[in-house]
């Protein structure tokens, strides 16, 4: 049950984009079309789950025993950057279909702060391996949800009369503000706060 709560908390209550302000660059950068939003979301789910598990093992079995905890920032970012590079090469060779769907988003993911942020959060919260897995699935699904919702709304805003000065990013921020307000409603959900 507590794993389910952890999942819900990561997915809705503490939505990584709208409540935690992580991953705002892709949230505003690739949310102007629905299909790119879905593609980005899928890549993030895949990379985040993989990288969270790998960084968890790296921290617990290499950095901790060797007393190298101070290297975690450098170690994590290098591991994530090389993982993304490796996935890109592997997909290109082995699964061209997947590569053509996700390929253009993969390089962008290295600088997506959700991936590194979730790796740090898993350590800071002291998650076990199972909790790490559940948490990263919840967070990445929450990211995808926010991104797809945003893309849907922005496609409508494109045809709406918006004051010149507010066109583009400013109106997207106001949309995000209203979405965050709606997600704030989940705060009382199940009475949990994490």
């Amino acid at each position: 049950m507590s794993l389910f709560l952890l999942f819900l908390s990561a997915f809705l209550v503490n939505n990584i984009v709208l409540m935690r302000f992580l991953g705002l660059c892709p949230f505003f950068g690739v949310s102007s079309k629905l299909d790119t939003a879905v593609g980005m979301g899928m890549s993030v789910i895949f990379v985040m789950v993989l990288s969270s598990v790998i960084t968890w093992f790296l921290y617990q079995y290499i950095l901790m025993p060797l007393n190298l905890v101070f290297l975690r920032t450098a170690a994590f970012i290098l591991v994530i950057a090389s993982l993304v590079q490796f996935l890109e090469i592997y997909f290109k060779k082995a699964i061209p279909g997947l590569y053509s769907a996700l390929g253009i988003f993969l390089p962008l993911i290295t600088t997506n702060c959700t991936i590194l942020g979730v790796a740090f959060l898993n350590i800071d919260y002291g998650h076990s391996l199972i909790q790490t897995l559940v948490y990263s699935i919840g967070v990445s699904l929450g990211f995808t949800l926010a991104l797809v919702l945003m893309a849907g709304i922005r496609m409508r805003i494109d045809t709406a009369p918006v004051p010149d000065a507010m066109k583009g990013l400013p109106i997207a921020f106001i949309t995000a503000s209203l979405m965050a307000l709606a997600f704030l409603g989940f705060q009382g959900f199940l009475g949990l706060s994490l």
Binding site: D164, I171, F173, I174, S177, L181
Partner: peptide, 25 residues
């Protein structure tokens, strides 16, 4: 209280950016 919660952050930056663009124009 709204202002220090997450939605307030989005709202403030929206109006700051919009304001800058308005005066530039």
């Amino acid at each position: 209280l709204f202002m220090i919660l997450p939605p307030g952050g989005f709202l403030v930056i929206a109006f700051l950016m919009g304001g800058i663009r308005y005066f530039e124009a």
